[in-house]
Design a binder for these strands. Structure first.
Length: 651
RNA sequence: GCCAGUUUAGCUCAGUGGUAGAGCAACGGUUUUGUAAACCGUCGGUCCUCGGUUCGAAUCCGAGAACUGGCUCCA
C-alpha cells in the first residue's frame, strides 16, 4: 500500500454482504444485472474472487499486464489480460505460486464506492486492475467504465495492493479460496467483439476444497475417456479424411453407418405415425433459389462457394422478386450452390401443386444432407461438421394450427428423449435483435414480434421449461433449440424447432382458404434428432460407446469354447441373422477368456458363450457387455429375448 | 477466420544434432481352451508437408496443412 494510499484515505471501504450489493459494474460484454449479482452463489463468489487473486499474481510477475474482465464460469473462472509476454502452461506454476502467497496472506476483499470522475482518474493513472499506479492507463477498465450507466454506483474491490474496478460480490478474504488450479490459456476478443483487440484468457478451476476439485478433474478424465472422437475412432464408427475428402466431412464407416440407419428407421417410423410425408431433393440448387429464400446474402458466409456453369440462356436476371443483392451479370452463366438447408427445396415442393386449406398441415420430411462452410477453427469431431445429415421436416400450417403443430413437435422430442434416456434438457427460445434487422435477420419487425409472441404463448401454455435468449434466432424467424447434457455434464444443442414467417411469402407460397382467398402458410422447421453427426456424437458420449442392443453396431457374438462347438454356434448365429440381427461367430483359436476379452473391448452388446454343456442342453450362456455373466438360458428363450429387446428399442 | 498449443508405426507413446524405438493391433505358426488377454515368430515409419541452417535434422529456423483448447459463429 504505497502509491494507492491516496485512494484509500478519502473513501470508505466496506465488506460486501448480500444486502449492500448495490453496485452493478460489468466486466463482461454481457452485463450482469444487479439481481443476478445478488444471486451469485458462494461458490461463484469464490471463483470470481479467485480471478482477482490470479490477476494479483500475474501483476507481481508482469506489472504491465492490462486486465479486462474476470468472471466466474462453470467450474472456475477466467481473466482476460493483455500482456506482451505470451503466457503458456509453463508459466502456470509460477502464477499459482504467487496466488498461493496471496491466499496465504488472507487479505480481506474490501469494497470501495467511488465517483465516476474518481474512477476515470484512477483508470487513467493505471491504478485499476493493478498493484500500484502505472505509466499506462488501465485502458480496458476505462472501456468497462463506459458500459456502466449513469446513476449506477461504481465500486472497487481491493485485496492487498490489488485494486480492481468490480461490483463483486466476493468472499470475505483471499484465504477463503479453498482449492484452485490454472487449466488453460486461450484467446478472446475484448467485450466479445472480433473488431476489438485479442486478449489472453487464462482459465482456472476453483472449488471449495481439494476434494471437490479432484472430483472435477476425475470427471474431466472420464469425459476424455468418453470423447466421441476417441471412441469413434476406436470403435470404427467414422473417420475424417482431411487429405482426400476434407476437414469437417466425416466418412461413416460400416459400424457408424449402422447407427445412422437405426436412427433413420426410428425417425421414419415416428414421422409416419405423426403424419409426415417423406420427400427427397437434390443437394444443389440454382442461385435464384437462395436469392429468393434470403440465404443470399443473410446466410452466404456459411455456404460453400458456388459452382459456376457457362450455359447460354441460363443466366440469372438480377432484379427479380426477392432479389436483394444480385450483381448485374453480362455473360450468360448459372451459379449453383450446395444447399445449406433443405427448406427452399421443400418450399418448391409446396409450390409444385395448388394447395388447399384442406391439405394443411402439410408435413414434408427428409433425411437430407446439407453443406455448411463452417470456419476451420469451429470444426469439432462430429459435433461441428460441414456435411450435415439432417432429420429435417417442414410443416406448413395455418396460424390456427400453429400451436398444435408446435406442441406436436415438442412432444416428439420428449418421446425421443425417453428412448435415449435423456433426463436433463432445456429449451432455448431464441429471439431476434432489432438492431440487426436486415443484417442477420430478415427486415420484418412486425412479423418478428407477432411470431415471437406466438411462440412465447405456446411455450407458456404448454408449461414447458424454457429460457429466452436474445439475438440467436434463425435469419427467418424465432427458434427453439433443445439443449441436452450428456451424463458427464457436457452440453449439446441437438434438436431445433424454428418458426419461419418470412420465406414462404418470399417464394409466393399460398394455399386457398375456406373463403376462397389465397393465404401464406406459416412454416415450422424442425429437426428433433438434429443431425446424424451431432446426434451420434452425443450418443457415443452419452452411452460411453456402450450402445443399447438395438443401436449397437455389433449386437451379438457367439463364442464357442472349443472348435467342437463352431457348428452349434453357427446355427445360432444363422437363426439370429435371418431375423436381421447383427451377429457373428468368433471362430478364432483364442481361449474363451481371450474371446471374451476381445468382445468386451469391442463393446459387443451380447455374448453367447457355447461349450459342450450348452450344446448338450440346447442352451447358451448369456453375457452382457459390461454386466458380466448372466447365466445359462435355453437357446430359444435367449434368442426370443434378443428379438424382443431390439424390437422395443430397450435401453 | 483469429489467438495459443500439438503432429514420430493402425493405436498409445519414448526418442533434444550422429544408423528411428517399445507395448498393443495386424500377419504366420503352435496351442483346443469354460467367462476380461495362451505361446513363439514376422511385418510395419515420407518422424505432417515444403523450404532453409548444418559435414549431418524427427530434433534448430521459416512457411503451409491438419488437429486440440478457446474466441467469433452454429445443428
Amino acid at each position: 500500500m504505497n502509491a494507492d494510499a491516496s485512494i484509500h484515505s478519502s473513501r470508505r471501504f466496506c465488506f460486501p454482504t448480500s444486502s449492500n450489493m448495490e453496485a452493478n459494474i460489468t466486466q463482461q460484454a454481457e452485463r450482469k444485472t444487479l439481481d443476478e449479482r445478488n444471486r451469485m452463489t458462494e461458490l461463484e463468489r469464490l471463483r470470481h474472487s479467485c480471478a482477482h487473486v490470479m490477476a494479483t499474481a500475474i501483476l507481481r510477475l508482469w506489472p504491465e499486464a492490462q486486465f479486462a474482465s474476470g468472471p466466474a464460469v462453470e467450474n472456475g473462472f477466467y481473466y482476460d489480460v493483455e500482456l506482451p509476454h505470451r503466457i503458456t502452461p509453463e508459466d502456470f506454476a509460477a502464477i499459482e505460486g504467487e496466488m498461493k502467497k496471496e491466499v496465504k496472506a488472507n487479505h480481506p476483499f474490501e469494497k470501495l464506492v467511488v465517483s465516476r470522475e474518481q474512477a476515470i482518474k484512477d483508470a487513467q493513472s493505471g491504478r485499476l486492475g493493478a498493484l500500484s499506479e502505472r505509466p499506462a492507463p488501465s485502458r480496458f477498465k476505462l472501456g468497462n467504465l463506459e458500459d456502466i450507466p449513469e446513476g449506477e454506483p461504481i465500486s472497487y474491490f481491493k485485496n492487498g495492493d490489488f485494486i480492481d474496478l468490480c461490483a463483486g460480490p466476493h468472499v470475505m478474504r483471499t484465504g477463503n479460496i479453498g482449492a484452485f488450479k490454472l487449466t488453460s490459456v486461450a484467446s478472446a476478443y475484448y467485450k466479445g467483439d472480433e473488431r476489438n483487440p485479442q486478449l489472453q484468457r487464462i482459465y482456472g478451476a476453483a472449488f471449495k476444497n481439494k476434494t471437490e476439485m479432484e472430483a472435477y478433474f476425475a470427471m474431466l478424465e472420464e469425459a476424455k475417456r468418453r470423447d466421441h472422437r476417441k471412441l469413434g475412432s476406436e470403435m470404427g464408427l467414422y473417420t475424417i479424411d482431411t487429405e482426400y475428402v476434407g476437414p469437417g466431412l466425416p466418412l461413416w464407416l460400416p459400424s457408424g453407418a449402422i447407427i445412422a440407419e437405426e436412427l433413420e428407421k426410428l425417425a421414419k417410423e415416428t414421422e409416419f405415425l405423426a403424419g409426415y410425408l417423406p420427400v427427397k431433393t437434390p443437394h444443389i440448387a440454382k442461385q435464384k433459389m437462395y436469392l429468393t429464400s434470403g440465404h443470399i446474402p443473410l446466410y452466404l458466409e456459411s455456404m460453400f462457394p458456388p459452382m459456376e456453369l457457362a450455359e447460354a440462356g441460363e443466366g440469372e436476371r438480377p432484379g427479380e422478386p426477392g432479389d436483394a443483392s444480385a450483381t448485374p451479370r453480362a455473360e450468360a452463366s448459372t451459379k449453383y450452390y450446395l444447399k445449406a438447408m433443405n427448406c427452399p427445396h421443400h418450399h418448391r415442393i409446396f409450390a409444385a401443386q395448388p394447395r388447399s386449406y384442406r391439405d394443411l398441415p402439410l408435413r414434408l420430411a427428409e433425411y437430407g444432407t446439407c453443406y455448411r462452410y463452417e470456419q476451420s477453427g469451429e470444426l469439432i469431431g462430429l459435433m461441428r461438421v460441414r456435411s450435415l445429415s439432417m432429420n429435417d421436416a417442414h410443416i406448413y400450417c395455418t396460424p390456427e394450427q400453429f400451436a398444435q403443430e408446435f406442441n406436436g413437435v415438442n412432444e416428439m422430442y420428449l418421446k425421443y428423449f425417453k428412448i435415449f434416456g435423456v433426463e436433463k434438457y432445456v429449451m432455448r427460445f431464441s429471439t431476434h435483435d432489432p438492431s440487426r434487422l436486415g443484417q442477420k435477420f430478415v427486415d420484418e419487425p412486425v412479423l418478428w414480434k407477432q411470431t415471437e409472441d406466438m411462440v412465447r404463448r405456446v411455450l407458456n401454455e404448454s408449461g414447458i421449461n424454457y429460457i429466452e435468449v436474445p439475438n440467436e434466432a434463425a435469419f427467418y424467424g424465432p427458434k427453439i433449440d433443445v439443449q441436452v447434457w450428456s451424463v458427464i455434464g457436457r452440453e449439446f444443442t441437438l434438436a431445433t424447432n424454428q418458426v419461419d414467417f418470412a420465406v414462404p411469402s418470399r417464394f409466393g407460397l399460398v394455399y386457398r382458404d375456406r373463403d376462397n382467398t389465397d393465404k401464406t402458410p406459416l412454416c415450422i422447421h424442425r429437426a428433433p434428432l438434429g443431425t446424424h453427426e451431432r446426434f451420434i456424437g452425443f450418443l457415443i458420449e452419452h452411452y460411453a460407446g456402450n450402445f443399447p442392443l438395438w443401436l449397437a453396431p455389433q449386437q451379438v457374438r457367439v463364442l464357442p469354447v472349443t472348435d467342437e462347438q463352431i457348428g452349434y454356434a453357427r446355427s445360432i448365429a444363422d437363426e439370429l441373422h435371418s431375423q436381421l440381427v447383427r451377429v457373428e461367430v468368433d471362430a478364432s483359436g483364442d481361449k474363451i477368456r481371450g474371446k471374451i476379452q476381445r468382445a468386451e473391448l469391442e463393446k459387443v452388446n451380447t455374448m453367447l458363450v457355447v461349450g459342450g454343456r450348452e450344446q448338450q442342453a440346447c442352451a447358451v450362456a448369456v453375457r452382457i457387455h459390461g454386466k458380466g455373466d448372466q447365466g445359462v438360458k435355453p437357446r430359444a428363450e435367449a434368442v426370443a429375448g434378443i428379438f424382443q429387446a431390439i424390437k422395443e428399442r430397450r435401453a
